[in-house]
């Protein structure tokens, strides 16, 4: 790994650890290997969003050309959000692409992702199904995102009605996550989700 990349990550790592956001448990980074090429990030779901109370884990890969090129970041924790793929965790965020600037740091990336959870950009979606729901059925979107937060990110919400629908499908032999994806994609319409799963 290029010297400047490793050296900078080391400095940034210390900076994040000392930052006030860490003190508030809003963001966190951990080393995955000794060579500073891969890190694990964590962000807390922002208050007053469906992600509140959840803890979202990120995979951060630092390219050799860092900081001249952005780190590669994706969500490991499954999340229901217009700009994040519900399948792969890939993120659509301009600063991780062409709007990257060399003075940005791990800290600013994590804070930007947190801001993305507060303010989605459905017109520049990563997940078209989620984005459509976000625009056309905002209440349904909030419910679904909250449900995913409680299931995958340790969020506090209890939603027995949605859990029941999933159980109906798992009783038919459908894998739980697939059942959740199908129901989420069809606005929790059990019939249409069943149709899609068994077609």
């Amino acid at each position: 790994m290029a010297n400047i990349a490793a050296q900078r990550i080391q400095r940034e790592f210390k900076e994040v650890i000392k930052s006030e956001e860490v003190a508030k448990c809003a963001i966190k980074v951990e080393l995955v290997n000794d060579s500073f090429t891969e890190l694990k990030g964590e962000i807390a779901g922002p208050p007053d969003t469906p992600y509140e109370g959840g803890n979202f884990v990120l995979e951060i890969k630092v390219p050799e050309t860092y900081p001249f090129n952005p780190p590669k970041v994706r969500f490991i924790t499954k999340i229901w959000h217009p700009n994040i793929s519900s399948v792969t965790g890939a993120i659509c965020l301009d600063i991780l692409k062409d709007q990257w600037a060399a003075a940005m740091t791990l800290r600013t990336v994590l804070l930007s992702l947190q801001a993305l959870l507060s303010a989605a950009e459905p017109d520049d979606p990563q997940d078209a199904v989620v984005a459509k729901q976000y625009k056309e059925q905002p209440d349904m979107f909030r419910q679904t995102a909250k449900h995913w937060t409680s299931v995958y990110a340790g969020g506090p919400a209890k939603m027995p009605e949605l859990d029941d629908k999933i159980r109906r499908l798992t009783d038919m032999g459908v894998e739980e996550h697939n059942a959740r994806v199908a129901l989420s994609s069809y606005n929790w319409d059990l019939e249409r989700a069943t149709e899609q799963l068994f077609s």
């Binding site: 050309t65 001249f68 090129n69 600037a101």
Partner: peptide, 23 residues
């Protein structure tokens, strides 16, 4: 904004079509 010249030069080289201050 303050930079090392080698660092800034490399940044300008990385993005020849988009010459903006990294900060």
């Amino acid at each position: 904004h303050l930079f090392c010249w080698p660092c800034l030069h490399k940044w300008l080289e990385t993005r020849p079509t988009r010459q903006v201050c990294p900060v």
